[in-house]
Design a protein around this nucleic acid. Sequence first.
DNA 1: CGCTTAATTGACACGATTCAAAGATAGTGG
DNA 2: CCACTATCTTTGAATCGTGTCAATTAAGCG
Lengths: 247, 247
Amino acid sequence: MKQTPELISGDCSECPIRHRAVCSRCEPEELDELEQLKYYRTYKAGQTIAVRGDDLTTVSSVVTGTATLSRVMEDGRTQIVGLLLPSDFIGRPGRTHAQYDIQAISDVTLCCFRRAPFEQMVTRTPHVSERMLEMALDELDAARDWMLLLGRKTAREKVASFLLLIQKRSARPGGEELGEDLRLELPLTREVMATYLGLTIETVSRQLTALRKDGVIDVQGKKVIVIKDLIALMMESGDDDDGGILD
Amino acid sequence: MKQTPELISGDCSECPIRHRAVCSRCEPEELDELEQLKYYRTYKAGQTIAVRGDDLTTVSSVVTGTATLSRVMEDGRTQIVGLLLPSDFIGRPGRTHAQYDIQAISDVTLCCFRRAPFEQMVTRTPHVSERMLEMALDELDAARDWMLLLGRKTAREKVASFLLLIQKRSARPGGEELGEDLRLELPLTREVMATYLGLTIETVSRQLTALRKDGVIDVQGKKVIVIKDLIALMMESGDDDDGGILD
DNA sequence: CGCTTAATTGACACGATTCAAAGATAGTGG
DNA sequence: CCACTATCTTTGAATCGTGTCAATTAAGCG
């Protein structure tokens, strides 16, 4: 679990998620206000950030690392219902208790705000609430796409869709259309994949093997997957194109 | 498909969804402004309201009736990703194309606004955008709960959960703790149920039969289901309680 | 280099789907 | 008012995909 401790300056203008988080639309003076409220908190990989029912005294943005949102049934069956990546927001106005379990799956840094002052701030600064609405609606779309996957896709389609999701999210903007950003470094175990896809570990493993044998991907060790045939993988995922809906 | 045409006055203060829709927090003068923009549009049961990719020139609130949001795969597999009930909102700021197919499953009346003027209005009236954020986050929670259902629940649990969902939503506020609002009039065919639950029609039918044979429910004709044992049904649904998270 | 944990593979079981047919229901017209 | 018809629902039998349980292999770390 060694990881270079990423030193994060207190200066919001230097923040790696400056342009995407809830604060992305803020004017300099609004940023100043946020800057006074915020503080950082870090979690190690595997650590629990919150469990369902917890009193949420803070809200936060993910600055670095990855966390999962999940729901657990009484008998232990678990479904990951969201992946929290840098710039994603944790908590919501008007809700004092956590609805989901939140776990760090890599080392995570959060930019935290005490809830009450943050909520006051939000009502005063439309730039924050506008951005929060936009982010919430994006998450809603993502959740609904995932519902299609969970409800209707086969195991093979699920795994293919997952690899494409990771590929899209880890793509460095600009440059990868040259073709060779198709090497995925998964920060995730098979268990996390399975829990996200509504499958078992064994099934995920079998589907990866099958895709490898069919020449679509290459599996190198536990954490690296190379997409050998992106077009084929897209076909396997069962997704149609977006019909030109990329507002 | 006969249905008494519900005459809806143009007066927002008389509106059946006045207290729950995006406009619920508006001051009288804000309502006046909305009133000038709005117009009603009706759809018959079964009619398509929008298909994925459509140019959305309007946004709207459901006033009466029920509609579904769904995603369809190329080969026809379909998943309903949301139920639109009175007060639910259709469309989103900053998005010009429909992301989902929208279909009326009963006769539906929408309160419509042309998109551009509505968006301008929203930026000026925080009461609307606040409410939209709240509603979006509620929908997100509902979507995530549904992900647990789709990913991890058995067919029997899915059907039980569905009946409880309908029961909760059709419960008249106050009064049903006397016990006998447990007669559900489903406006839905088995097909809609199946498409919502990620199952086939046959499986839904079998599970309803099984629940009936076990004395949990009673099925009267196609559209009426009586919950004979609510506690048992809750057990069957696989949901734990909410841990006291009812903000 | 060995040890611990994660991942893979295999055999089998079970639940849900598929395909097919019969039964019930609601709407229509005589 | 009843028969007729189209549609929806239920039921049955066989199949297929994924889960379960168990054993083996590989990877990563001290």
